[in-house]
Design a binder for these strands. Structure first.
Lengths: 108, 108
DNA sequence: AAACTAAGACTGTCTTAGCAG
DNA sequence: CTGCTAAGACAGTCTTAGTTT
């Protein structure tokens, strides 16, 4: 069972990979950006993306930041909502707060 | 350092606790709901909420579901956005899809 | 009742080294 | 060069048992 994925769904690894590929980056680049030694960066990122190992939240947060995404993006199970969370994070802080407040009022 | 929290921020534990308290449930109730034996349910949920231990994503997903929240809610670092994600999850599937699609178009 | 904690058992991750495409 | 994998070293969680409020 060492070669069996931890999760059949593997949302987090899936989001990590899709974001990384959108940016055209290697696994090594992502790993080194978050401070992993270049000798093990590829192995670790590979396992995260495949869902063989699970990154602790602290590490997931670093990867999300490196990929220009908010932490909740990595754990979002709906593709369209994930896209919303990503676009939202690209807004300037003030604009983002206004949008979120409006949505909150809309749903409340 | 065994008594030191893993994370100074501890978003996940914080969201678990606030949701559980909103529902007026005990830690044991949440644990038993996700299939933990009642003899260890309190200890495990307590450590998750305090951030002393980190729940694997599979367990976090079970807890989120028991608390009536989507997985991304537990990892959302912005309080207002977390409230949006929670409200959104309460809509019927069709209504939710429409809202998300509209937001996506609005930001794209 | 309810929440928290210590400690050993247990389970998963991380590094190293190397293979495959 | 880029991604993937085995295996031992290592770090984390889980259960049990018990304390605290």
């Amino acid at each position: 069972m060492p070669s069996e994925p931890l999760e059949s769904s593997n949302v987090v690894g899936h989001r990590m990979r899709s974001r990384r590929e959108e940016l055209g980056w290697s696994q090594e680049k992502v790993g080194v950006l978050i401070g992993i030694d270049e000798s093990s960066a590829r192995a670790r990122i590979s396992r995260y993306e495949l869902g063989l190992h699970e990154a602790p939240v602290k590490t997931a947060r670093q990867i999300a930041e490196a990929l220009g995404a908010p932490l909740e993006y990595l754990y979002c199970e709906d593709d369209n909502l994930a896209a919303v969370l990503l676009s939202l994070a690209k807004l300037k802080p003030n604009a983002r707060k206004q949008v979120v407040s409006r949505w909150l009022a809309e749903l409340a």
